[in-house]
Design a protein around this nucleic acid. Structure first.
Length: 528
RNA sequence: GCGCCGCUAGCUCAAUUGGCAGAGCAACUGACUCUUAAUCAGUAGGUUGAUGGUUCGAUUCCAUCGCGGCGCACCA
């Protein structure tokens, strides 16, 4: 049982207190992080007094001297603690340390006989006694022993993953740099960042099923937003001509290596521009962000080499389908399109129109093949209720593009529809579709329609999947690798009365109320 | 949601045709003042994911469930 290991640590903790040592002190004055200390290490040898602190990752006691490995965000360094030098009392403290403890050491840089950079300690301080053991991973000459690589556990106990795997930390540094670069790119071009509601009474701006929640005081059904689109367009109406939001949206759909229930979406709206200019900007932005975040345009992702330096071709969805299948999706008999999909075992709902069929064939036969960055343009009207009709083929198509890289969609954009009469008609069409069984059809948002009726400037609008961009730039193949705490199934599925609550406050009452009727009316009235 | 694979000590993994559940590391005790996967000697550590079934006997065979991974479907 694990508690036996913990008992040993708790006993040492008690002993430390007996010795008059506070195992949880208030801080430590560090002179160098490990990476800084290693820069110009030899010049400092036997000269400077240094102070380092971090997590104890290895202990090699040899009687009256002990070697240890200390890890901080800058890396690991060896410590040499001699009884002669730190004193009898400190050496007893040392014997009460475990792997995983946080310690601080004052000392002098030295090299061992084998040349390893080392801090010879003159003083030892306990900074935090760890009472829960962490997985022990050993390494020699780049070879790792007893690697801790249970993927699920790494997501579930991400703090351990971060301690044990520097490359995990790097992914989140890439993520931070990516987000910062996106903001910088847009800020530099006069875009204003805004924040709009996540809790909404009407969800819209995308085709997806929402999460449902409830406001107690108002006794109102609320949704978590599935897109940022509609409020940002109201900003356009209000005269914020360049506006963006970079935030979390929520879609109540399947989870796999490309999908998490909540994900980070960048949307920006650009007045007086159309989707072609938006493509120019997105292409430039992707390159700028890649250079800022990882310093290169040549990437490897899911086993494919991706070259962001290549011009992003702009190919119409219909042309791509024709090229890959021989079907002319705009002119061939609809039955031929249906037959193709049946042949590929794609379920086709009865209400599907030519546009839906075109999109379905594209998804089936083309999408996965678009490895290098490609703009797919000019989508069917029926699947794009917020896009402006195509200036050349207004009856069938809209002005829209999706950016594909590595066979995966990264972005979605239109020349935004600003004809209020048409917009209202399209919402009504969506409502009809909903009646026919399309549960992703968009609900009518009256506030949004009224804003559009006031007059929204012609504009391009772009949505970009930030998690996927981070995946591409960090080389991660799954979205869970770029989320610190991805959504997972609850750990203690089976016995409800199991006394196994242990860590991560798996409180039994925190179940998502799937049914409406299950709302507890009597919860803590007026806690505010 | 469907299919395939997996789940054994804190970690990484063994266990012949169904026959007393093991090793290394970590832990504990002892030795060791330049080690580095430290070494040496000893000790302890398990409801084999859960429940049920077949059997004299189940880690092993069967069923159901849980969790995870991969693939498919839906989406971004």
């Amino acid at each position: 049982m694990r508690s036996e290991l913990m008992e040993a640590r708790l006993a040492k903790l008690a002993r430390l207190r007996e010795l008059g040592i506070n195992p949880y002190p208030y801080g430590f004055h560090r002179t160098h992080t490990v990476d800084r200390l290693l820069e110009g290490f030899d010049a400092r040898m036997e000269q400077e007094a240094v102070a380092v602190c971090g997590r104890l990752m290895a202990l090699r006691p040899m009687g009256k001297a002990t070697f240890a490995q200390l890890q901080d965000p800058g890396g690991r360094i060896q410590l040499y603690l001699k009884k002669d030098e730190i004193g009898e009392a400190a050496y007893e403290v040392l014997s009460l340390l475990d792997l995983g403890d946080l310690i601080g050491v004052h000392g002098v840089p030295m090299r061992t006989r084998t040349g390893e950079a080392t801090v010879r300690a003159t003083r030892l301080e306990v900074l935090c006694k760890s009472i829960r053991p962490l997985p022990v991973v050993k390494e020699k000459d780049g070879q790792v022993f007893d690697a801790w690589e249970d993927t699920g556990e790494r997501y579930r106990r991400r703090h351990l993953d971060l301690i044990l795997h520097p490359q995990t930390r790097r992914v989140f540094e890439v993520r931070a740099h990516t987000v910062r670069a996106l903001r910088a790119f847009l800020d530099d071009r006069g875009f204003l960042e805004v924040e709009t509601p996540i809790l909404v009474a009407i969800y819209g701006g995308a085709s997806a099923r929402p999460f449902v929640t409830h406001h107690n005081t108002l006794d109102q059904k609320l949704y978590l937003r599935i897109a940022e689109e509609l409020p940002l367009k109201r900003c356009l109406v209000g005269g914020i001509e360049r506006v963006y939001e970079l935030g979390r949206v929520f879609r109540n759909e399947g989870m796999d290596r490309g999908h998490n229930p909540e994900f980070t979406l960048l949307e920006f709206y650009w007045a007086w521009a159309d989707y072609r200019e938006a493509m120019d900007l997105v292409e430039e932005m992707v390159r700028a962000v890649a250079l800022a975040a990882v310093g290169t345009l040549e990437l490897e992702w899911r086993g494919e080499r991706i070259d962001l330096a290549l011009p992003f071709p702009r190919l119409s969805m219909a042309d791509l389908v024709r090229e890959h299948t021989g079907i002319d999706p705009l002119h061939d008999d609809e039955e031929r399109l249906r037959a193709f999909l049946r042949g590929h075992h794609v379920a086709i709902p009865a209400w599907a129109s030519r546009g839906h069929l075109l999109e379905a064939i594209f998804d089936e036969a083309v999408q996965a093949k678009l490895l290098q960055p490609t703009f797919v343009i000019d989508h069917p009207r029926e699947v794009s209720p917020l896009a402006k009709v195509h200036r050349d083929q207004p009856d069938l198509l809209v002005e829209r593009f999706e950016l594909f890289i590595g066979g995966v969609e990264f972005g979605n954009a239109f020349s935004e529809l600003n004809d209020p009469v048409d917009q209202r008609r399209r919402f009504e069409d969506q409502a009809r579709r909903r009646d026919l069984g399309d549960d992703e059809a968009q609900a009518q948002d009256e506030e949004f329609l009224q804003a559009i009726e006031t007059g929204m400037p012609p504009a391009a609008g772009v949505g970009l999947g930030v998690d996927r961009l981070v995946m591409l730039l960090s080389g991660a193949s799954g979205i869970r690798d770029v989320l610190l705490f991805p959504h997972l199934r609850p750990e203690d599925g089976a016995s409800p009365e199991s006394v196994e609550l242990e860590e991560e406050g798996a409180s039994p009452e925190s179940v998502a109320p799937e049914e409406e009727g299950a709302r507890p009316e009597s919860v803590e009235p007026g806690k505010d």
